[in-house]
Design a protein around this nucleic acid. Structure first.
Lengths: 216, 216
DNA sequence: GTCTATAATGAGATAGAC
DNA sequence: GTCTATCTCATTATAGAC
């Protein structure tokens, strides 16, 4: 669409800047003027392309959702295939669910990092309008994981698996946010960016929990 | 100090209003004018009592920290006493850690509810300055729990227990925030305010994880 | 598609009267 | 300890020139 040296379009420049700033300071912590300043474009262009601020926020949220959600579903499918006729193990399902986000966080460039930080910040906010919108974008993948865990642990009730999955979800999302919490808790010996090490701990840790609640 | 019918002092009226609004909309989502309007006092009084907005936020954060932190420590002590000479079990330590906050969330009145929601919102924000301040207020209790878990599972490394405790912490804090996440995940069958039921699931769930990672 | 200019509003903070 | 008045600055949003 563009000549090779023009870089991103104005629309994308605004989305990129908004993504970065919303990730750092949340919805209310950012003004449209800061966004357009950061993007190097005129203030009026934000309204021109996106309308009000809330719509710009939603546009940022939606831009990468389809790709990431698709990657998570594909990752779950791959684990299913590898398991053959039997249901895949819980630990591998946890890994399949978390890995695509971590891949993009680590190797997807700044844009993906900002996007995932932004989602993590949103998840525990009281901004329930945006929160529900985001939740809905990833619901099919979450339901699929819960379904497969139930096949893997048939004695566990739906309620038990839902509660356990929620615990998993909150932990995974906190890890995506790379906050200083873990670093301070460990006196600086564990870095929030050691995602591989953290996932190697998290996966068996939570798998054990799911199995423990198998009879509930 | 006050006559019995004057109600809270102006200072406390401002703190109460700030607590409520910060809990709902976060630091940036609230203006001093909104706070003083909600408190029914003049705008200028916020500056008079607390100085800049950041200092007011810190004052809200600090007001209840000592009491809650003390209650958590007392709760841990009680579990230790009950266990006698042997180290207390992991599940009872998890309960001791989470229960004082839940008690205040459920039975402490609006003020405590707002305070705990505000802390939960802060924990996963990128507001690292306030975040670190809050973390520090509760560090002794967290260290104590980790210490006792290590006594209970002597084969677990410090690193393993720290990672596991971090997972626990993120889940517990998410639950305090009472967001719509769990409700949506369960299609409305599990309510975020069913704290007793959630804790009955969470405690054995996480205890199993700690034990699973005993040899790491 | 981009920018200038401006309208309308609200923000934080404080000096000074009471 | 409280309030009025005001300063200074930034905000969203839009109308209209280019």
């Amino acid at each position: 669409m563009n000549a090779p040296d023009t870089g991103p379009t104005t629309r994308d420049r605004i989305l990129n800047a908004a993504e970065r700033l919303f990730a750092q300071r949340g919805y209310y912590g950012v003004t449209i003027r800061q966004i357009t300043r950061e993007a190097g474009v005129d203030v009026a262009l934000a309204s021109y392309y996106f309308g009000p601020k809330a719509d710009l926020f939603r546009a940022v949220l939606e831009r990468r959702a389809e790709e990431l959600h698709g990657a998570i579903l594909a990752s779950i499918d791959a684990v299913e295939k590898r398991a053959g006729d039997r249901p895949p193990g819980v630990e591998s399902l946890i890994r399949a669910f978390a890995q695509p986000s971590i891949d993009r966080l680590v190797r997807g460039g700044e844009g993906w990092r900002d996007y995932i930080h932004m989602m993590a910040g949103l998840y525990s906010s009281q901004q329930s309008e945006f929160l529900v919108a985001m939740n809905d974008m990833y619901t099919p993948a979450m339901r699929r994981v819960m379904e497969l865990i139930r096949l893997s642990i048939p004695t566990a009730s739906e309620r038990s698996v839902t509660l356990s999955f929620y615990m998993l979800l909150t932990a995974v999302i906190s890890i995506y946010s790379e906050t200083v919490g873990l670093e301070r808790l460990s006196n600086g010996t564990i870095h929030p960016t050691d995602f591989d090490a953290i996932l190697d701990h998290l996966a068996p840790f939570f798998a054990a929990g799911f199995h423990r609640m198998a009879s509930v």
